[in-house]
Design a protein around this nucleic acid. Sequence first.
DNA 1: AAAAATTATGCAAACGTTTGACTGAATCAG
DNA 2: CTGATTCAGTCAAACGTTTGCATAATTTTT
Lengths: 344, 344
Amino acid sequence: MKNHLPTIKEIAKQLNISVSTVSRALHDHKSIGLRTKMQVQELAKKLQYEPNQTAIFFQQGKTFTIGVILPELSEAFFSSAISGIEDAAHKSNYTVLLGQSHDSVEKEKQLIDTMKKHRVDGLLVSISKNTTDYSHFETLQRYNIPIVFFDRIPKISNIHYVACNMVNGTVQAVNFLFKKGHRIIGMINGPEKLPATKERLDGYIQALTKSRLKYDPALVINCDLTKESVCHATEKLLTGKRKPTAIVAFNDYVALDAVQQARKMKLRINKDICFVSYANLPISNYTAYPPLASVEQFPYLQGQKATETLIELLQKKSDDDTDVNNRTYYKIILESQLVLHDAK
Amino acid sequence: MKNHLPTIKEIAKQLNISVSTVSRALHDHKSIGLRTKMQVQELAKKLQYEPNQTAIFFQQGKTFTIGVILPELSEAFFSSAISGIEDAAHKSNYTVLLGQSHDSVEKEKQLIDTMKKHRVDGLLVSISKNTTDYSHFETLQRYNIPIVFFDRIPKISNIHYVACNMVNGTVQAVNFLFKKGHRIIGMINGPEKLPATKERLDGYIQALTKSRLKYDPALVINCDLTKESVCHATEKLLTGKRKPTAIVAFNDYVALDAVQQARKMKLRINKDICFVSYANLPISNYTAYPPLASVEQFPYLQGQKATETLIELLQKKSDDDTDVNNRTYYKIILESQLVLHDAK
DNA sequence: AAAAATTATGCAAACGTTTGACTGAATCAG
DNA sequence: CTGATTCAGTCAAACGTTTGCATAATTTTT
């Protein structure tokens, strides 16, 4: 039952020619006579010969595989991203090797190791929440495996990355509210240490300043994204001295929890209080009181761009045949954008 | 800048021993003296030697990789599934090679080919909507690559699969409604040709029969899952001769659209009309009028089980060293289960 | 007719690792 | 002291492919 797959050797033997001739014939090499070329190709077809890629990978030191490490595959944001990644990779004939870190640094390290072992040509990473030490990424340099980070990127400078800038989107969001007549605009922001939190705050302040509204720190409350802390923040905002008529929420989940809390407090959504947020749910259409608008972060696009960037790097690598670390780094920044929801 | 990675050969040369000794020393082979073993391991560490897996893959004809082909990575159901797959694979030291077919038969074929080329050890597939010809899967038999199908499985018998049986869940759903006092229960079902549609109908009829209610075909309307067809179906049900007080919807999306339509018709949700559906959204908590209950299909679990099954097959394969096609097929059926939602 | 160029093919090394078969030395039983 | 056993290690083949270099055969040029 040993079903030996046909190899180049066998073709050679059957045709009484050398393996190199067969190899070249299959590659349409010019130095092979038309006659033998035909013979080889015919027999190859007959035997349903298919080259053993593992041998080729090994021989060429290239696997046409890119590794992808994400925090959580089941999150809407990342599943869109991976979709973009896969599409872009497939287009350039690369394949995707996947791993999820579950936001554990330990697992992230393991995955890096696995990827290294599998000799992926390049790596796409969105780092885990808790990663602060980046040494495990550096080990990849020895292997000349380039990394492109996306969305969640390390706070170091000599890296390639693709990210979405939240400042602009936030400015748009606040402007939007301003134009609708809101003058007291609150914000339920995320955990302090997240870069994403800072960007939102920056945009918020920028927009206020431009509209000649004064920035009142009491109107911005951080939360840790749990339901309780969101409710708490909402309550605090809505019972504060200066009561906002609109709130910018850290993301859709936060917005939905805040809406619930506001309703509990007998406020009428979109009348007494309006919300805008940042998109991570595909379902705003279905919720009863969706935010008026969301800042879109284009996960699919981010994944796609990151992949294209990586593939470009790989291209360059094989062109120059030089070290990848040539001190020029891609920093690709997509602009977030406010998307208005249908007023039902 | 040619950063040659350390190999077994180099270690051998530096220590003036043969490569085989080094190899065995690194594998802790008993026939190697303690002294040399130590020396080798020490040098290996010092040089930061790591075996070249591509060489090993090639040499052993095994890649410790499983291929996964899904219709759509960004769909909640599949992203949960892939999460389960990755977790299970990682646990057994397998890695996941990913591809999405976008429900295109053509792309599905291409992916099969890619997976074959990469010499994955096994394959996990949820087939595209439009696949009716299964010959591309059969080509894998030559390569002795086992496939486990899950969720969307081909209608042929000599295959391994993991699926979730909807009959039981549907029975539970209808019973649940019956116990709540409903006597006229409608159903908005899916496209006729889908097996999933049939299972739901079977369960529906079974449950009715047991409760001694008569099955009235006018109360079951198929739709093609578009918003329009759902609205149309809902309207037809709710203006029919026998007006249902409860409706079983094909899935959460359908339910939400149906709810919208019902509200348009001035019916009070959960008073005039109740809904139950099948879970694919993680957000029922947030919607204004979620279905009373959902039949859960456990995508994460399905992915996990499928992976475990595949790995078991791979185990067997290497044990027996015999052909995988030994005429015994795993058919693993998870039972769907009704999950009640919090009444808010 | 000799030299040069072209065409078609073969040889063998290389990629890094594993592994069965073999060898030489030391140890041990009787 | 001989033969068997264990120990420590080496040799070389094998996995399938690519590719630089050599070679042989043929044709073209001078």
